[in-house]
Design a binder for these strands. Structure first.
Lengths: 239, 239
DNA sequence: CTGACATTCAATTGAGTTATTGAGTAATGG
DNA sequence: CCATTACTCAATAACTCAATTGAATGTCAG
């Protein structure tokens, strides 16, 4: 065993041990991403912080199960927690985590098309509504020729939305149709490309004779492209 | 159970099943990333395609073990294969996979600093050599005031390198020092921020009295920033 | 067709992961 | 202080994954 004494460069064994540790750190992150449940929780959290109870409800999980998965995400440092009275609020630890989730989604995109027709059918947005892209929407928002609706729960809207959007929560779409402007085109968006709130809203509105298109992105994709995001001042849960 | 008959929108059960399938597709990718060994293989492959035998050797794995992990990566569609005579050559399936690997690395970066001092010690580049950044290097390459050396095996150099770099494989650094220009500053780079070939080379060259700095990026990071990458025409393995 | 080589497959064993259940803990309101 | 709510922890059983071994497959050189 030739052990070099040079302080700055360790032995070959030290090296490969260190290299292994580095890859093991990376693998911690990978492991945390290796569960559909945890990815769903991450996706929800990417739309805004939430309590364990809210996450369990939205992902249809047992409280204990949600808690365990969230602990796992926290152990991988993908999320952080904060106590707020009786609740523990989880949030994404760093913008790089949202970017990571998007990278996974991008890598999965091709295979979804290829080998899961059920999922594809569920997502057929293009077939029903001509999608609008970010740059066209940005231009038309400036021109004032569209009305942009954010079809998500108010809590998510408050934590960040496309500047200029108005919040029409999923349950309120029908009611909102009555007072919707009939002259302008309506653009609906929700959480992102795999979220169907905006499509549902578009179907509902079109059935009432309105002109609607859908933006396939969410507020994170919009923000990641450097476009303006607004957030409503929160008054902390229900304090 | 109210089952809607509308063809375009399925029942609530269909929905949540479809949503689950989507997250399960994402999780396939996550699972593939959940092993230090597979991440090391991906990292090697991001530097260029290789046979199973070459990968097993470079990652110090049994042939069968390397093959199984590579099959797992292939099942997640992160890598593809091609037969070349008796060998099977694996390669990254899509640029989005390299981006995914980089996203994992970025998310892991903070924790490495925080909770693995062994790995940190191994990587202490800044302490020894003033790092150069991409834009400074690009400028000085244009000016011709630096000599850029690519400290990787020739096969990797051939498959893609920073335009203007000359290849000095890890074992040849000492020999190359003799004919290295003494007037210009030397910049060394290798696979990327977690690769130590360039640091080793820099130490060796500095011990011989040369002026050396290190670029912490590899060819993928350089290329991802839209900077020019060159590749040498391959003549296909050993055909 | 045979032997050599690179790779994959199959079967085994041990280790790690998941969902579930029930108990334990921290903050709040009375 | 007690009850309640929100959450976490511990223990279990079912399941999945990893490393290893040896056999099987595909290709090439003769």
């Amino acid at each position: 065993m030739s052990v070099r004494k040079t302080p700055s460069s360790g032995s070959a064994a030290d090296r490969s041990a260190a290299k292994r540790r580095i890859y093991e750190q990376f693998a911690r992150i990978g492991k945390a991403l290796g569960s559909a449940t945890r990815l769903e929780l991450l996706d929800l959290l990417s739309q805004g912080e939430r309590s364990v109870e809210a996450l369990a409800r939205e992902a249809s999980l047992e409280m204990a199960s949600a808690s365990q998965h969230l602990r796992a995400l926290a152990a991988a440092r993908l999320v952080e927690t904060r106590r707020e009275g009786q609740r523990i609020v989880y949030r994404i630890a760093d913008p790089s985590v949202v970017a990571l989730f998007h990278a996974v989604r991008a890598a999965a995109k091709a295979q979804l098309a290829e080998l899961d027709s059920v999922a594809q059918a569920y997502l057929q947005r293009e077939d029903d509504f001509e999608p609008i892209d970010q740059s066209e929407l940005a231009r038309r928002l400036r021109d004032g020729t569209v009305v942009l609706i954010d079809v998500r729960p108010p809590e998510e809207f408050a934590q960040g939305h496309i500047r200029g959007a108005i919040n029409v929560p999923p349950g309120d779409v029908s009611a909102w149709a009555a007072k919707a402007p009939r002259k302008k085109e309506i653009v609906a968006y929700c959480r992102g490309p795999y979220c169907v709130y905006s499509m549902d809203a578009a179907r509902t509105l079109r059935a009432k004779g309105l002109r609607v298109r859908a933006l396939p992105d969410g507020v994170n994709e919009w923000g990641a492209a450097g476009r303006p995001v607004a957030r409503t001042a929160t008054h902390g849960g229900r304090s």
